[in-house]
């Protein structure tokens, strides 16, 4: 028995590095469509790779934007710059509170914002967060924080992506990777924003209900709010505008809105008082550039009324 156990242990020790090598070779040489469980979207949707690379240039901003594509396609730093406010948009594709929490812990000290604008939507609580985790793992440096996220998700794809990212980092492979700043439909704008170049509205997909919410997303959401509060940074929760045909616009979830509002200042841009038409959007979820400018100016007005930045300035002077 003792010999059997020692032999089994020896095999495990042999297996671990070999497994990582197989994973590396698979990732480097096998086309992604042939592997079920290694998905590594480096330079994928949302320009997160460029955004993270650009972060080094930013220190001490007035406003930090967080959230999913509602954030990185909705908050344009150029509009806020016109008001004299510096900002950075740390949104990412399908970002759920789990990833928001990770990114905040990783970058809050460096960016040290006066205010956080956090784009919230019911969907981000209904998603397991795996897709966004893969985006974060493939486009930023793996660390203990991302491993914590991976172990919490406990999914083979996220484990593989973390190991693969670590192997790439260890061997220095792909360090010079740069994603194209412009695609046929998008262009990356310095400061983390992604501007859509297409004209016209296309509701080409039927948005279905994503199902019930994940409790752990609410736990991380609370942690995001509390983490900011501990650093004496106000968090403004923003429901970004949705097209009139969006299911959450047609049938808004009152319970969700009430729950979100209980965590702090919540500005809802989907209330019936705001008149959005499909001319402001390029798809069901996202504003076109004309809509972004309109929305951002309304948001700036709202922030001015609340005098949040002025209060923070005053606090800092003390």
């Amino acid at each position: 028995m003792k010999r059997f156990l020692l032999k089994s242990l020896a095999f495990l020790v042999f297996l671990i590095p070999l497994y990582a090598i197989f994973l590396l070779l698979w990732g480097l040489f096998v086309p992604p469509k042939f592997g079920n469980n290694l998905f590594f979207p480096r330079g994928g949707n949302g320009h997160l790779h460029t955004r993270i690379n650009e972060l080094d240039k930013y220190k001490e901003v007035d406003i930090l934007f967080l959230g999913s594509s509602h954030a990185y396609r909705g908050f344009d730093p150029r509009v806020f710059e016109e008001e004299g406010w510096t900002s950075f948009n740390l949104g990412s594709s399908n970002q759920t509170p789990l990833q928001t929490h990770l990114l905040l812990k990783r970058y809050l000290k460096q960016l040290n914002p006066k205010v956080i604008l956090y784009a919230v939507s019911p969907e981000s609580f209904q998603m397991d967060g795996i897709e966004s985790a893969l985006d974060v793992l493939a486009n930023s440096t793996p660390d203990s924080l991302s491993f914590k996220m991976v172990s919490e998700l406990h999914h083979i794809q996220t484990y593989h992506a973390w190991i693969y990212a670590s192997m790439l980092k260890f061997l220095g492979i792909g360090e010079n990777f740069r994603e194209a700043p412009e695609t046929f439909k998008d262009v990356y704008i310095s400061g983390g924003f992604v501007e859509n170049k297409l004209n016209g509205f296309s509701a080409d997909f039927e948005k279905g209900d994503l199902g019930s919410e994940f409790d752990y997303q609410w736990t991380h959401f609370e942690s995001v709010v509390n983490h900011a509060r501990l650093n004496i940074i106000p968090v403004i929760l923003v429901a970004t505008p949705l097209a009139p045909s969006h299911p959450h616009r047609k049938n808004p979830s009152v319970n969700w809105k009430e729950r979100i509002a209980s965590y702090g200042t919540f500005i809802d841009f989907n209330s019936p008082r705001v008149n959005w038409t499909e001319a402001d959007f390029f798809d069901t979820d996202h504003l076109n550039q004309q809509g972004v400018i309109r929305f951002n100016r309304m948001l700036i007005d709202s922030l001015r009324v609340r005098k949040l930045l002025e209060v923070q300035d005053a606090l800092l002077l003390q």
């Binding site: 297996l15 497994y19 197989f22 994973l23 698979w26 592997g35 079920n36 593989h160």
Partner: peptide
């Protein structure tokens, strides 16, 4: 073992 975890 690797193929099992990679391809399932």
């Amino acid at each position: 073992f690797f193929l099992i975890l990679m391809l399932h």
